[in-house]
């Protein structure tokens, strides 16, 4: 796999078609999936995915092999999403969240679960950009601490503290929301 990857990178630097096809095939869905989760907009995510691959191709010379190739690709995806966040100031609607983050878990309480999840995620989206991307990468995408540290180019210690602070803030928000709901039934 390692050998194959370095081969792909070499061919990508030469601009060979086969290498382009290989990385789109290998990473296209992964990048797209990550971006959908980061920006919760399936259509815009397609455009961003395109942007990511264009950046990969044009900046392949800058990839020196200091990190894994896939974390390098994901870091480009995260950066593209950051640019997108900066441009798009409006908040996300709960329905869009539900649409994007529905579960494929076929259990009885699926509707309620989806609802709850959408609320949590909408709260995640309200976090600071740094905490938001760390929490999404960890809790939604399931990357390990070391992977996240490579993707965001920060130390593992910083990753841990960003995640724990993000989660903590998230919990406070959810508690407030619950209290609010509990106190006033026709809210939300």
């Amino acid at each position: 796999m390692e050998m194959e990857e370095s081969n792909i990178i070499r061919n990508l630097k030469k601009g060979k078609n086969i290498a382009l096809e290989t990385i789109v095939k290998e990473y296209g869905n992964k990048v797209y999936n990550l971006i959908v989760k980061l920006i919760s907009d399936k259509e815009d995510a397609k455009d961003l995915t395109q942007e990511v691959f264009i950046r990969i191709y044009n900046n392949i010379e800058l990839f020196k092999g200091n990190s894994s190739f896939y974390t390098w690709i994901y870091s480009i995806a995260v950066n593209c999403s950051k640019d997108y966040w900066r441009k798009k100031k409006e908040t996300y609607s709960l329905d869009a969240m539900k649409d994007v983050f529905y579960s494929n878990n076929k259990t009885e309480d699926i509707a309620e679960k989806n609802e709850l999840r959408a609320i949590i995620i909408s709260e995640i989206y309200k976090l600071d950009a740094d905490q938001k991307e760390a929490v999404i990468l960890r809790d939604i995408m399931g990357f390990s601490y070391s992977e996240i540290s490579e993707i965001l180019s920060i130390s593992q210690g910083t990753v841990k503290s960003r995640i724990s602070r993000g989660r903590h803030k998230l919990r406070s928000c959810l508690q407030n929301l619950n209290d609010h709901r509990g106190g006033n039934k026709d809210g939300s």
Binding site: N29, N33, F101, Y102, N104, K113, R117, I120
Partner: peptide, 8 residues
Amino acid sequence: LLKGMVDY
């Protein structure tokens, strides 16, 4: 709750 979400 956040686990097991659909992949795109």
